[in-house]
């Protein structure tokens, strides 16, 4: 187990709702206990021995990094578009590797079986070819030109549509989805997942959305996303091994798994192995 790479990333450890309600959050990060307190504008993150870690409010969540020289917190430009509705969906604890949680977020082939009637439905199971690349200038994984038949792509969708997707992985435990916005076809809805690694085999996933939807009540938006993410939870808790295997011989991908193949390769290349199984088959 190596936390060397992982220590210098930023992680969500609480959301704005918790601090706004005056909660003191006892949590963990990379196996170490942490306390999150203060107010949303002046958050305080301290370790067990009382050391204060850097803390900042971004995307309606409190972020921290335990490293001496953290890489920049991923920029999500749409967060500055004030006519969007921003929806922090709360944290959900999952007994799986944080990397497995991200990989599942990048996967579309499971929609008909796990998100039946919402994000997919038989017989519309085929995944058409799409493009995946590591953008070296920004060191991010991008998957583009993805299309999928969805019975209810968003709360705002009134009928089944062919949804377009782009995925972006700016950090090993942060992934962003750009998705067809049913009421505003020229724009993308943004759905991100911020994964807090509690340990190598346990995490809290914090979904967050930046949507164009002026009609749907806020609580419905939250619940739509929670419904989808919680459908994934029982899958994630039943994958073996719990850690994400980086040896390509341990799990057999097919063409539609290209995003996952490149994500795993990217992690391996960077040495981002916290939550990964690095031993050979």
């Amino acid at each position: 187990m190596s936390t060397e790479y992982a220590r210098n990333d930023w992680y969500v450890v609480a959301d704005v709702n918790q601090l706004a309600a005056g909660q003191v959050v006892e949590t963990r990060l990379l196996g170490q206990p942490l306390r999150v307190s203060g107010s949303p504008d002046a958050p305080l993150v301290t370790t067990a021995d009382g050391t204060a870690l850097p803390a900042q409010l971004r995307y309606d969540h409190i972020w921290t990094s335990p490293g001496a020289d953290p890489r920049p917190l991923p920029d999500i430009a749409e967060a500055a578009e004030r006519d969007r509705t921003f929806v922090p969906c709360g944290g959900v604890r999952v007994r799986c590797s944080p990397l497995r949680a991200v990989e599942n977020f990048l996967d579309i082939a499971h929609f008909p079986f796990v998100h039946t009637g919402i994000l997919g439905e038989e017989p519309h199971t085929e995944v058409a070819p799409y493009k995946v690349e590591i953008r070296e200038d920004v060191d991010e994984v991008w998957a583009t030109q993805i299309g999928f038949h969805q019975p209810q792509a968003a709360k705002s969708a009134t009928e089944a549509i062919e949804t377009r997707y782009e995925y972006r992985v700016p950090a090993p435990t942060t992934a962003v989805l750009y998705k067809t916005c049913p009421p505003k076809p020229e724009a993308w809805d943004v759905i991100a997942i911020f994964v807090q690694p509690l340990a190598e085999n346990e995490c809290i996933a914090w979904p967050w959305m930046a949507l164009y939807d002026e009609v749907t009540p806020y609580a419905d938006l939250v619940q739509f996303q929670q419904e989808i993410f919680l459908q994934d939870r029982s899958i994630l808790e039943n994958q073996k091994p719990t850690l994400l295997p980086l040896d390509p011989r341990l799990e057999i991908p097919t063409r539609c798994d290209l995003t996952s193949v490149v994500y795993r390769r990217w992690l391996k290349r960077k040495g981002a192995t916290y939550g990964a199984l690095t031993t050979a088959a």
């Binding site: 073996k240 799990e251 057999i252």
Partner: peptide
């Protein structure tokens, strides 16, 4: 073996 060779999911589900 309770493991789908694709992504390791338990086949008992």
């Amino acid at each position: 073996d309770n493991r789908c060779p694709h992504r390791g999911m338990r086949l008992s589900h």
